[in-house]
């Protein structure tokens, strides 16, 4: 169809008067995009791959020496890096699970005839539209032990959210859940409203109870779209930086991307940090692949 729609230029058009052909116009749109992608995405990707095999430091003028897989070996044998990965994994699990439970729950509540449904949905989506940095700064105030509204509302006195090493990671996760549950809610809502009503009627006739209906009808039918939400949120949570960086500086909240940032721009171990970035990339791709495999299996029917 697209090729059919591409007709001869109108001889009166400006492009025609300038002597532009369809091909020229097509290239005028595509070439800048491709150039941008190559310069800002693909080139750095390959360039950093090269650096990951060297001892390059961006802070000095010393030439980069090729060190082979030494960076990777050092990183994978470093117990501190593994602690960072463990923190990240804990954060991903808590945060994504929280978002799915809250988001899917709210979607279930909204998936019925209620007054002001559109308005409520829009308002619930607001956190998602804020900037990460703004959310981080706001929640820092909300969590404040002396004047924060959270302690006041929950009657927790001077409970330390962010300076308590055991609590800080959960505090970051709670903020992330607050911010991104609406995303899961939105996708779940789309999935839920796509489940045909007559299937629920059939289940009622078949004498299925509400829990049985939920686990055997609702959940399996929403699973593919819920899976997509989970893939997105897992990837994002794995890379999380701003929220954790702004909210606290506890060693227990040093997720892998904060470690990467420190390694690259505070310790200036450029080569090493490139290697770490590659390890992260491989992990994210691997985790996402597991989900995508599962998603395809779910979608098969």
């Amino acid at each position: 169809m697209a090729t059919l729609a591409m007709t001869r230029l109108d001889p009166q058009s400006r492009a025609a008067r300038r002597g532009w052909s369809d091909l020229t116009i097509r290239n005028a749109f595509i070439i800048p995009t491709i150039a941008f992608l190559i310069i800002f995405n693909i080139f750095p990707l390959l360039y950093s791959l090269g650096y990951s095999f060297t001892d390059f430091r961006a802070s000095t003028n010393a030439p980069a020496n090729f060190v082979g897989l030494a960076n990777y070996k050092a990183l994978l044998n470093d117990p501190f890096i593994w602690r960072n990965f463990a923190i990240t994994a804990k954060y991903v699990i808590v945060s994504v699970a929280g978002q799915v439970i809250v988001g899917f729950g709210v979607a279930m509540l909204l998936n019925r005839a209620i007054p002001f449904k559109g308005l409520i949905t829009t308002l619930l989506l607001l956190p998602m539209m804020l900037s990460m940095a703004v959310v981080g700064l706001f929640w820092k105030l909300l969590y404040d032990p002396s004047f924060g509204i959270i302690n006041y509302a929950l009657g927790l006195g001077r409970f330390e959210w962010l300076s308590n090493p055991d609590m800080a990671l959960y505090a970051v996760a709670i903020t992330d859940i607050w911010m991104w549950s609406p995303f899961v809610m939105l996708l779940s809502l789309a999935g839920l409203s796509a489940v045909p009503k007559h299937l629920y009627e059939a289940a009622a006739i078949d004498r299925a109870g509400p829990l049985y209906t939920f686990f055997r009808i609702t959940l399996p039918l929403v699973a593919p779209i819920l899976m997509i939400a989970i893939i997105f949120r897992t990837m994002e949570a794995f890379k999380t930086f701003d929220l954790a960086y702004i909210l606290t500086s506890q060693p227990t909240t040093e997720v892998i991307s904060i470690r990467l940032y420190k390694m690259a721009f505070q310790e200036w171990q450029t080569g090493m940090s490139c290697a770490l970035a590659y390890i992260m990339l491989i992990m994210v791709v691997a985790i996402t692949n597991i989900y995508v495999k599962y998603l395809n299996k779910v979608k098969e029917r």
């Binding site: 045909p196 007559h198 299937l199 059939a202 009808i217 039918l221």
Partner: peptide, 9 residues
Amino acid sequence: FQSFSLYPH
């Protein structure tokens, strides 16, 4: 049901 309403999954 007229639409059969079989569980597709």
